[in-house]
Design a protein around this nucleic acid. Sequence first.
DNA 1: CGGTTAGTTGAGAAAGCTCAACAGATGTGG
DNA 2: CCACATCTGTTGAGCTTTCTCAACTAACCG
Lengths: 258, 258
Amino acid sequence: MQTITLTEIRRPERQFAAFAPSATDPNDCAQCSSRRFCMPDDLDFGDAPGLKGVFGNYRKVRQGEAIFHAGEPFRNLYVGKVGSYKTVAIDREGREQVIGFPIAGEFMGLDGIGTGFHAFDAIALEDSTVCSVSFKALTATAERNLNLSNHLHRVMSRELVRESAMLMMIGRMSAIQRLVAFLLDLSKRYGERGYSMHEFNLRMTRDEIGCHLGLTLETVSRGFSKLNALRLIKCLGKSVSITDMAGLEQIIVHSIPQ
Amino acid sequence: MQTITLTEIRRPERQFAAFAPSATDPNDCAQCSSRRFCMPDDLDFGDAPGLKGVFGNYRKVRQGEAIFHAGEPFRNLYVGKVGSYKTVAIDREGREQVIGFPIAGEFMGLDGIGTGFHAFDAIALEDSTVCSVSFKALTATAERNLNLSNHLHRVMSRELVRESAMLMMIGRMSAIQRLVAFLLDLSKRYGERGYSMHEFNLRMTRDEIGCHLGLTLETVSRGFSKLNALRLIKCLGKSVSITDMAGLEQIIVHSIPQ
DNA sequence: CGGTTAGTTGAGAAAGCTCAACAGATGTGG
DNA sequence: CCACATCTGTTGAGCTTTCTCAACTAACCG
């Protein structure tokens, strides 16, 4: 297999090493690759006294480790710095639903603001680094900084729109269309963050994908096989290479050919 | 049919008359039945100069009329004062998805904050009254009022959790379970707002319910017939009477008996 | 009082699920 | 380093649920 895997593109060990020495220095945000996603463009640490200590507190998590659990008191928001994650809701009957697969630069924990308790579990899908943000300190600072306040509103609103797009997808699309929408969304988000849009590694299992899309793992697996057969992707286990982006987009519109 | 319909319970004409004389007087918020849903408990108009004019601007909409359309610039949030609504997302391919059925006391338009443009249509399902809230004035006031700011965060966060519950529902539940979840949710929300939990009128069509739950209108209709046959509800057209609340809750847990 | 819209019900088709067998990858202890 | 267990992914066959298409009834509206 000659596709470049995401592990190679990312080199997590090197990033870990690079971040480790300044792991508690807020000013390191200036160099953080997720900065433009997690705070407003024009935010300057000089502007707001007390902003130091709000951002920039890193924490490493190992694969499978939880960043927070549903039911825990809500204190911090988290932004993925390196790595990938899943957020999972579990209802009274014990059924799981994977709400999303946040990657670096995306917020986790917004669900806790409403009730003061987290509604989801957030789990690292690989060895990762998250930046924790004290919500109390954030809102106190936001009170004196309209920019930061607006930024938080925008982040939450976009999350609302993203979830409604998911609703649309699960409500109206066939299994293969959901799978394609999932791949295109992932591709777009990797692209926005400087990774390859065409070649990446899935960090989650078929079961977790199914749980996200409202499908069984077998249907997900058959979907990947079908997309392989149609020569729209080359997928071998967790390694995915998109070979016909336009073809995939057609499936969203017209369902599957032949 | 001797069930008390929602129209009777609500007496929209009388409410219209009652609100009309003070339709532009912000202080009328003090008497508004939706007040405790749309603003923090302890907010006092004396506290914040400029708060007058933020809340309390009523607008009447007739059945089928839009409060805002997807794509329009986002300026105001809206809170249903009287009546019921649907919010609808329409994707590039023209497929519709009913995102929700807001009733009095619930916010509409939060989707527009992220991009500055509304992502949804909001349509009145009956003659209704909405209260429009200038988002600019709201955030400017919130900057000087941590309470109000936190309230907005909580409202948005709860909306996020509500949508993820919808995702869970559509992803994991059978047709009949979705229908029951829909009825129980509606019943709970009516109850919270002082209407009967057991008897109400659906303001939306079978098609709109289906579009919300990811089902066809025929499946929705069959679902209602089935729940009738099981004597869990009495449903005649749009009039619904819940006769066995516990039985309905069992269906969520164990799917359908026999 | 026709015309339109909304709702119900039936029959057959199709999509996706369940169950099952198996293969490949990974990890562990001897 | 190998044997074995476990986890993950693939594929097939039959079954179930829901969708599609269709006919029909009821309610609503000028």
